[in-house]
Design a protein around this nucleic acid. Sequence first.
DNA 1: GTCTATAAGATGATAGAC
DNA 2: GTCTATCATCTTATAGAC
Lengths: 194, 194
Amino acid sequence: MPRPSTDTAERILELAETLVQTQGFNGFSYADIASKLRIRNASIHYHFPSKAQLGLRLIRRYHGNFREALDSIDRTNADARRKLKLYAQLYANVLKDKNRMCLCGMLASDHHTLPKPVRDGVKDFFDDNEAWLTKVLGEGREAGTLRFDGSPAVHARVLLSSLEGAMLVARSYGEVSRFESVAQRLLADLDAKA
Amino acid sequence: MPRPSTDTAERILELAETLVQTQGFNGFSYADIASKLRIRNASIHYHFPSKAQLGLRLIRRYHGNFREALDSIDRTNADARRKLKLYAQLYANVLKDKNRMCLCGMLASDHHTLPKPVRDGVKDFFDDNEAWLTKVLGEGREAGTLRFDGSPAVHARVLLSSLEGAMLVARSYGEVSRFESVAQRLLADLDAKA
DNA sequence: GTCTATAAGATGATAGAC
DNA sequence: GTCTATCATCTTATAGAC
């Protein structure tokens, strides 16, 4: 059977993700989803009873996919510099796809209006990213391929903040190159030979 | 006479600014303003016929105030490092006040849903900030107090993006210290003696 | 699982009295 | 310049038929 049930829920998540990433959590409605998927409002509520629950599912999905990408980078690469480059590309790929913002970066902007569970999900995402970056930065300095002052943890925050901000600003210009030049500079400054 | 007319328009702008900075352009309504200022919906429309016009007035006001702050920094300081520190403090002060996001950073997140004139206003703000930063970075390197690779223009983009992103992420934690540690690291890395 | 129908309230906006 | 009254539309959400 051609996956009968979960299919619609998946299509809803897929579209809702794009909508949050481009318009924000308060910038789209169930009606937007219904019309684009040619289903009814009530069908969405069947799968996701409230918008808060939809938001939470969206974060968990996004975080899970991101986690897999980080694990994949870890599995297939040894060099910290290479890992950071691939990490930045993760962001670039999001931006290249319909000028999307990072899901959690977008939700961070909506922070004040979000249900508590969604807020917490955003924090978890940032925490996980910072932990991964901290680890990679530590490894790189240890191996002598990366050079930076201060703690890996603080520099992880710098990288996370800067990449999120670079996406945010680049979207206003619709220029991915803006993101890329910032990311490139950020990574070049970590180069051991600098 | 105790400024009869402009007073209400000013109070509306003041509150709307906070609302946009904390909830986003799509996260507040005329009703929110009306109830908090104890006036009626129609009174707001008298001063600002459409939300788009309110948004534009908000940006112009914010940009103007920011411009004044930059001019003030230029007037009273010679050292580029000092100027950058004061620049970062401008951002920190916004964040400290009710966990606000930069008005234009917030509007950048709403980019996809904004009226064209508002979008353009956001770009103008970023352009102006980048130009100022580019100038200061150039001066600092010339004077030998700042050290960085690449062009002042690219580094200006790095600083703008990073500070905007640092605000965005810090808001999710409600910790100004998160912003401050990132800003501090960013500026320390530009130090000539690094 | 999807639909029709509908509720109950919010939204941006306007006409016209005071 | 502010008000009351009102609009058309959109919003999240639910009840119940199919």
